[in-house]
Design a protein around this nucleic acid. Structure first.
Ligand SMILES: [Mn+2]
Ligand SMILES: [Mn+2]
Ligand SMILES: [Zn+2]
Ligand SMILES: [Zn+2]
Lengths: 147, 147
DNA sequence: TATTTTATCTGGAATCATTCCGGACTTCTA
DNA sequence: TAGAAGTCCGGAATGATTCCAGATAAAATA
């Protein structure tokens, strides 16, 4: 997770302006990053800080940040995409009931050099996900056995 | 990758009928499974075998198969979702230029029992992806250095 | 076999997150 | 202060997927 200053610096280095709208979104990404927020939540929260922010701008900013490596976007279908601000290699534990996304730290296990030698494929980015049920939802499921 | 007969059996066990439309889709999944085909390709190919097949039915069937564990769906955003018929744990190497998806076999590296003990999260499904460039597209990129 | 029930199929409309667009606004620079 | 570049906004367009209601086909029943 990059710090606020690191993000601001990165934007400046890339020749991007640090506007009130972008600042608001940066702050939300830092405050709510662990939730892996989607555009909707980011929009809702950032609007509290920069009241005129539009949804278009929120999407554009998310894309801009993603393009410059400030965040990654976790793309889904049917449901909102989510933002990943933890750039270290880890597995996202995604609850299929409540949609919560938790980080699970791992040590890199695949020898990418070896993989590239064998397949010719060069990795620029990774996405590791386990789907299932979080502790809360497992218990809820148990309780509901007798509905 | 399940065999045709195994899939048919599984459907029957689940009380689902094996209709011409479903059979056509099963065959396409087996013939083109390595391409990780999307609904569009499956529709196009299966239509050659069952000429009246509709796109609605194709989607419905993909969902049904996915629900019954015959395939998994790889959800993306903006682009078509893709079907995964290789149910063994592996990493999908996804080329960001041509969209090709290649399987890379790995040995399970995360101790899920230990993870569940520590996080309370129970895994039902996984999705492991590396994004990057395949051998062909890497070479194309090089050639294009001087456009 | 005829009748009822159930599952499945189809074409078109609806959905909804996301992207696109033209015009307005802001910041930078000379 | 004027132009240029970057940014923002609201609303329309997009497009893969889902939903819907009526038609078909297969299975179950009598
Ligand atoms: Mn994460
Ligand atoms: Mn695969
Ligand atoms: Zn949950
Ligand atoms: Zn490629």
């Amino acid at each position: 997770m990059m710090t606020k200053d690191a993000i601001i610096q990165k934007l400046k280095e890339s020749g991007l302006r640090v506007t009130p709208q972008r600042l608001a979104i940066i702050e939300v990404l830092i405050e709510k990053g662990h939730l892996h927020p989607g555009a909707g939540l980011i929009y809702k929260e950032a609007r509290k800080k920069s009241r005129s922010l539009s949804l278009s701008t929120t999407y554009a900013t998310i894309n801009e940040f993603s393009r410059h490596g400030v965040i990654k976007t976790l793309q889904f279908d049917g449901v909102e995409n989510r933002c990943e601000s933890n750039l270290d290699e880890h597995i996202n534990l995604i609850c299929e009931r409540c949609g919560k996304i938790m980080d699970y730290k791992i040590r890199p296990s695949v020898d990418q050099k070896d993989m590239t030698r064998r397949t010719g494929f060069v990795v620029t980015n990774s996405r590791l996900e386990y789907y299932g049920y979080c502790r809360d939802c497992r218990q809820d499921k148990k309780r509901r056995q007798v509905p």
